[in-house]
């Protein structure tokens, strides 16, 4: 049952991801991306990481995607944008990219297959919950939290600065 669910989720995630990168309409692409996120969230559940799964839905599918959709809505001009995008991306011309990424895929799988064969099948019933994570996070990984906080602050300032309108006209 679990493996079936995994295959299903994995298949959905991969197909949705493929659709995401090939869409002309940004809004469609984002919706497919949300589907990918949800599928990955399900996989997290299957691995016994309910906290991560929840975060995946709340932050990724929720907050970050909302940001994307926000910007897309701001810049999207309906049919015009789709037409422009179809000028920019033609599936027929993506042969080189397909070739490169396929080679990459096979190479990495070839590289990692010996290690992968050694690893035993995980026990999915063992659940690592929010409590364990929280305990570890605020004891041994405290420095990491602070660094993350700093990173977020930097991003905040950067985003604020970049998002400002030009002052050239007023000057």
């Amino acid at each position: 049952m679990t493996s079936m669910l995994f295959y299903l989720a994995a298949g959905v995630a991969i197909i949705a991801a493929l659709l995401t990168v090939t869409r002309h309409n940004a809004v469609h692409a984002l919706l497919y991306l949300v589907i990918t996120m949800l599928a990955i969230s399900l996989i997290f559940f299957l691995f016994g990481a309910p906290f991560a799964a929840a975060l995946q839905i709340i932050i990724y599918a929720g907050a970050i995607m909302v940001l994307f959709v926000f910007v897309t809505m701001m810049l999207h001009q309906g049919e015009l944008s789709v037409k422009q995008e179809s000028q920019l991306y033609r599936p027929a011309q993506s042969l080189g990219a397909i070739l490169l990424s396929t080679i990459l895929l096979f190479e990495v799988i070839y590289l990692l297959s010996p290690q992968a064969a050694v690893i035993i099948t995980p026990d999915t019933r063992v659940v690592i919950g929010a409590k364990e994570i929280g305990l570890k996070l605020y004891t041994s990984y405290l420095l990491l939290v602070e660094i993350a906080a700093l990173l977020l602050l930097t991003a905040l300032i950067g985003a604020f600065h970049l998002g400002r309108r030009h002052q050239e006209n007023s000057k």
């Binding site: 490169l100 990424s101 080679i103 990459l104 190479e107 990495v108 070839y110 590289l111």
Partner: peptide
Amino acid sequence: VLAMLLAFSLIN
């Protein structure tokens, strides 16, 4: 990506 390919193939 190309460099990545080359690096991996070097390891392989």
